[in-house]
Design a protein around this nucleic acid. Sequence first.
DNA 1: CCTCCGTTGTACGAATCTGAACGTTTGCGG
DNA 2: CCGCAAACGTTCAGATTCGTACAACGGAGG
Lengths: 403, 403
Amino acid sequence: MTDDRLFGPQRQERLMDELRRQGSIRVREFAALLGVSELTVRRDIAALASQNLLTKVHGGATLPTDLGPATQVRRRGTAAPRFTIGMVVPSLDYYWPAIVGGARSAAAAQGVQINLRGSTYDWAEDQRQITRLIESQQVQGLLLAPNLDGDGVPEMIEWIGNLPVPVILIERQPPRWTPTKNQLEWVRSDHALGLEIAVRHLHEHGHRSIGLVLSKGSPTSAHLERGWELVCADLDLSPDLVVRESVRMQQPGYRETIAQLLDRCRAAGTTALVIHSDPDAMSVAQYCVERGMAIPEDLAIVAYDDEVAKLAEPAMTAVRPPKPMVGRTAVELMVARLIEGRRRPSQRILITPELIIRDSSIPHFQPANQPAADSPPGRPTTRRAHPPVRSSDAEGVPVRRPG
Amino acid sequence: MTDDRLFGPQRQERLMDELRRQGSIRVREFAALLGVSELTVRRDIAALASQNLLTKVHGGATLPTDLGPATQVRRRGTAAPRFTIGMVVPSLDYYWPAIVGGARSAAAAQGVQINLRGSTYDWAEDQRQITRLIESQQVQGLLLAPNLDGDGVPEMIEWIGNLPVPVILIERQPPRWTPTKNQLEWVRSDHALGLEIAVRHLHEHGHRSIGLVLSKGSPTSAHLERGWELVCADLDLSPDLVVRESVRMQQPGYRETIAQLLDRCRAAGTTALVIHSDPDAMSVAQYCVERGMAIPEDLAIVAYDDEVAKLAEPAMTAVRPPKPMVGRTAVELMVARLIEGRRRPSQRILITPELIIRDSSIPHFQPANQPAADSPPGRPTTRRAHPPVRSSDAEGVPVRRPG
DNA sequence: CCTCCGTTGTACGAATCTGAACGTTTGCGG
DNA sequence: CCGCAAACGTTCAGATTCGTACAACGGAGG
């Protein structure tokens, strides 16, 4: 509670800060913001302009631009400078719609536009789409999700890094170091951690032999497998029971695969499974029910991914990758990048998936609260400000941030 | 405790302390606070300003900044929700002021307040400060940087995770998984990558035997060492020449340490060093100059950290950790967390350091004279080479195991 | 006890910062 | 092309702050 008034240099620093954030400043607004006269703001702007730290324009100031003086400061009311961001995702009907949705909603909030292209998991096709977007001259930035599993990754990264617009990878992680001036930025779900959360959830409820079913060919699998190894080592579990076959219904021979899986479980005394892709998990659950196995009691299941898990019977406990948040964060990061330019340090962001506890992992019980069966070590009995979220509360209603 | 009168140096220390806490000082207020005359305060400020410890401004003083000095503000009258964020950092006079500065400026822009506490690298003291902040009931969130090197880390993490307000760690990375409903969030500089950038810079300019000097006891060292191992493996360099002794001037016996270091360099044919902490790097550089070694030509040096590197002679090439950005990002993340509540998925953010190329790593370009004497086969041109990048070695990108 | 010297406090003119007024310029719409 | 409204910047005035000049205070040493 000192004094609201700032020193001149502080004011100027603040102004530059706002400028870097917003891309432009209007004299009137900034004067009101700081509670100083407009004249003072103009004086500050003049001083900063004389050092080439900003460009004076009628109505305010903008970041100094190499491309000649900017047009005109945005009028009040418009939320932000308008950009168009290109987005190329490998699929428009699986996994990605939620990410695109998050990106769109963030774009709307930021006053920018998304130019979406569906591609495939093939790099050549990606390249085609990207080239087309660039050549259209309509996009100032790109959100990409190329497949980084195959060969030629360094070449891909270099090609991407040399595009004339900033790029942010979504749900992809390039090599540690990229041969570009600014390291390539990315935003992705931390699937390894998501898997770990699932396994620890099962472990906390007494399961000591846990298996993992992976969908072959998904870029996610690699992360899941890594998380699997780490968590098994930490919890002293055997990491051996891993199946790398899709057990989805459409898959030919899926029943045999499931049968073999269950045999292995029986042999190893395994009481819980984490299954990648909730349709696969549902497939296993249904098979079990047909065979007379009770789902949480005889075999606990946690699905990885939460597209349809809540529709299953019983409703599936599932790890929900933060897809909308990935899209949203990528857009916000891109807007910041576009506004602040290449001097902004690059960021790499991991977002944590969420465990949605439903009925396939722990027995459904009545409101009368009973602590988990046998609680392994590390039960923080401290005060919980907010109780953990149970299934019913996860309606699938996306949380939209205000603004 | 003592008599109410302080001696000059004590007063100045107090002033610096207040300055680091508040980001700025007003002569009138500080004079009233200490019960001395304003003139005395001005004299103190003038003295400190002459040592570049602060920047004198009309009405008081601010922390020194690169350009147009100043930082913090308090915004008023706008509709943004008001929060107060507690911040506990282990030191107020080394490394952290820049982070605090970034946090303050972001806080100003977001219309929130920072309640800063200086602590030590000792957990008990941290705990005391944190408890005090919580009990004051004045903070809605906490930015913490506890020392995670010693024992009892799981307990610390759990204690932190059960605080009644959200927490974000800055420049610290807790274990992969934390036993809280929402995984603990953090924002930190990617020092490992920063080191890699430094090494690759040297590698690009022809150096094939590179050494590393680490400051013992710094939390940063572990990250640097990790980056060192990774980059050496990638570039096929020997990772053996690592010194873990401070070579700073104050250090007793630093000259012997440097002498031994240079002996090892000579023996191994090492032509370049990365040295943690720019004062240490300057110390080595000065020693070399005294011994008649030319700095970029006979031994290239990249300093890690960029507090004073630009003041050296020759000006030091340095890796600059993105400290202000770390502070800023943490505040922005906290504000988002406070607005959106605990349903917002947690994020972990890595920010890339920046390589500031000055004169200690590549020969200063001279227009008329000879090209660089007989430096290693690097080109003084600015064209960027494209060093090889191995594909699947990135941290977090697992190698798929057969069977 | 006295003097020397460094530090601190008071006084006051100079310098700086800020804001209001007002004539001039710029941008925008008809 | 013209006119209006907003934005700009020069000028002046009020308030605050700065720093030199000089006096007062207190400890160290002779």
